[in-house]
């Protein structure tokens, strides 16, 4: 568990560092990584989607 956390932490930090190096939007990429690791697949009335897509969809609809 500790190892996992440390690895994830290093991954996030290194991504921010690398993305800054290439002048990319660090925050967006960090979000992608978090999504990849924690995004959950959900089913809504037969629609197979993920929690993040659903969140994105709700934001669009607002």
């Amino acid at each position: 568990m500790i190892l996992f956390k440390r690895r994830t932490f290093i991954k996030i930090i290194s991504t921010i560092l690398v993305s800054n190096l290439f002048n990319l939007r660090g925050l967006a990429i960090t979000n992608d990584i978090l999504e990849d690791e924690f995004d959950e697949i959900i089913e809504i009335d037969g629609l197979i989607t993920t929690r993040s897509i659903q969140r994105f969809r709700e934001n669009q609809l607002r």
Partner: peptide, 16 residues
């Protein structure tokens, strides 16, 4: 459907 969405190459809506 899960594999499609996980790999960001598609999405399905099942007609249960």
């Amino acid at each position: 459907g899960e594999l499609l969405v996980k790999n960001k190459i598609g999405m399905i809506k099942i007609r249960n």
